[in-house]
Amino acid sequence: MRMFATIAKLLVKRVLTAIPILLIVSALLFCILRILPVDPAAMSLPPNATVQEVEAMRAEMGLNLPLYQQYGIWLNKLFHGDIGRSIHFRQDVTSLIGSTLPATIELAVIAMGVATVFGLAGGLFLFYVRGTRAEAAMDFLSILLLSLPEFLWSLFLLLIFGVFFEVLPFTGRLSPGFERPVVTGFLLLDSLITGKIPTFLNALEHMILPCLALGIALSPSLMRVLRSSLLDAYQDDYIQQARLRGLSEKRILIRHGLKNAILPTLSLMGVQFGFLFGGTLLVEIIYSYPGMGNLMVDAIRNADLPIIQGAGLTYCIAVLVISIVVDSLYLILNPKLRVR
């Protein structure tokens, strides 16, 4: 019970501190994009518009007001769920983000699972081979892996499994001919709900490469942190003391070593998983995956300000949500923070 109270307290505190962060971030986003050399008014008019028409449009869009007033208006609209209309797609930004965000979330969540599994297994393996000849080789290998970022992994896996062996699909989310069920917006979930197992399997097949690319790219740093935290934990007296009480090595590792070593690993995961959302952008482009990353890059190429602002803010919220989730987990696992 007391644990729930402390976690609730943390959640409230974190959400409260997230609000000023989001306000500042939105202001920064607004300002950075206002210093752009492009004129949003001119862009939303046909190229043959007259100067008067542009001026009228500027007035209508509020562009001749002082910057802080513009920001106030923008923020006010934001509170009412209106981020504006895309200049390029001529659609509400909210609905554009709403239709692409679930795909990105699915990708990110599965990739996190992959990264966790690979990271923990690899970390345990690295720890297991400590002091042996294999250690140096494994350590070297982990640095090799560390040098391949997710976007190189994406291309690499695409070349091997998509182009050379042609065993896995690498464009989009579904092969042509499959119909997309829409219930929640999450494709995997929706195809299961509607009972379309072939669609589900096809979608899953499409996710293997992007998720592997993201997950594998993230795992080496987790491996290395877990390994070094385990090594640190094993320097501590309580491990030696557990040995002197005659506990088995296996029990010491699981109950005493891992339980302590998981804490630093977890705090790294908080940061890394936040950054993973940035990684999805590249992976989405490479695999033509219809998520927020593709939307964002399209917007950037077309200088589509409302989308850039909206998507930027969404990424920021995603990072904050993940860090709050990880912090709560950390709190559950670390009694030093939980009870005083």
Partner: peptide, 13 residues
């Protein structure tokens, strides 16, 4: 042990 505080595992009761 010599160091009683570190002789007990910090994450277990």
């Amino acid at each position: 042990p010599q160091e009683p505080l570190s002789g007990l595992n910090p994450v277990l009761t």
